[in-house]
Amino acid sequence: MSIAILVLSGTPAIAQEFSLKNGTDDVLVTGTSTLHDWEITVEEKSGTLALDTSGELPALQRLNLQIVAESLKSGKGSMDKNTYNALNTDDHKDIRFRMKEVRSLEPVQSPGKQYKAVLGGTLTVAGQAREIDLECVLTIETGRVLLKGSEPLRMTDYGIEPPKALLGTIKTGDEIEIHFNTVWTR
């Protein structure tokens, strides 16, 4: 049975609201450079998720995530500064994902409280919005929802020039990956 049919069936939805809290999960960005691989941790994020579990399959009705761009921290001040310059954080304070639809949802185990999902939505980075399909594993527990996955991206797709250092002798690779293991609570 299609998730779209469950969401649009006309049955009143009994959605439970969940929020993302800082410090209960991990979101990080990884990439490469001509010198070494690197990792940046997201320290400030917020979001809301609405989920109806009354049907045969859960119906994810809403998922919005917001990251404070200057909360990306590498542990190295100069790298953080280069990151903020590349993201133009003076003009673009946040990175946002807004789900538009659930493209697929399949149980991982039976009986299931864990599902493989593909979420279609808009990712906005440095003021540039692009449609993406976010693959993740959705786990439903009492009082909370876990979302885990990773998403490869190219900086240039968002109008970001990969940062350089030491007069261009150190160059960051265009490809990055966002890894997330988030906990959403009621």
Rank of each mutant, 00 (worst) to 15 (best):
118 V>G: 02
126 A>D: 08
125 V>H: 04
138 L>R: 02
116 K>L: 09
71 S>L: 09
37 D>M: 15
150 S>A: 05
92 H>D: 07
175 E>N: 13
153 L>C: 09
158 Y>E: 04
177 E>I: 15
86 A>M: 06
67 I>R: 00
47 G>T: 00
22 N>V: 14
34 T>L: 04
121 G>P: 00
60 L>G: 01
64 N>H: 15
89 T>I: 13
129 A>I: 08
11 T>D: 02
27 V>P: 00
157 D>K: 14
177 E>H: 11
48 T>W: 10
48 T>P: 09
113 K>P: 08
113 K>S: 12
183 V>E: 05
15 A>H: 02
97 F>I: 13
103 R>V: 11
186 R>P: 10
171 K>S: 05
63 L>Y: 00
56 E>M: 14
153 L>P: 06
49 L>W: 00
52 D>R: 01
77 G>M: 10
48 T>L: 15
23 G>E: 05
176 I>L: 10
6 L>V: 09
30 T>D: 06
17 E>S: 14
42 V>E: 00
126 A>E: 08
64 N>Y: 15
58 P>Y: 00
158 Y>R: 06
111 P>S: 12
166 L>T: 09
32 T>R: 07
98 R>N: 13
114 Q>C: 09
173 G>L: 05
50 A>S: 10
186 R>Y: 14
137 V>P: 02
12 P>T: 11
90 D>F: 10
72 L>T: 03
166 L>M: 12
98 R>T: 12
184 W>A: 02
102 V>C: 05
185 T>P: 02
58 P>A: 01
38 W>N: 05
147 L>Y: 02
137 V>W: 03
155 M>L: 11
136 C>Y: 03
127 G>S: 06
73 K>H: 12
132 I>E: 03
157 D>H: 15
21 K>W: 13
56 E>I: 14
5 I>P: 06
21 K>A: 14
16 Q>V: 05
60 L>S: 02
152 P>V: 11
98 R>C: 09
77 G>Y: 09
151 E>F: 13
52 D>T: 02
164 K>N: 11
115 Y>H: 03
84 Y>G: 05
168 G>L: 08
183 V>S: 06
39 E>P: 07
166 L>S: 11
22 N>I: 13
137 V>S: 07
171 K>E: 04
127 G>M: 05
34 T>Q: 04
181 N>D: 14
157 D>S: 15
77 G>A: 11
64 N>G: 13
129 A>E: 12
111 P>N: 13
10 G>V: 08
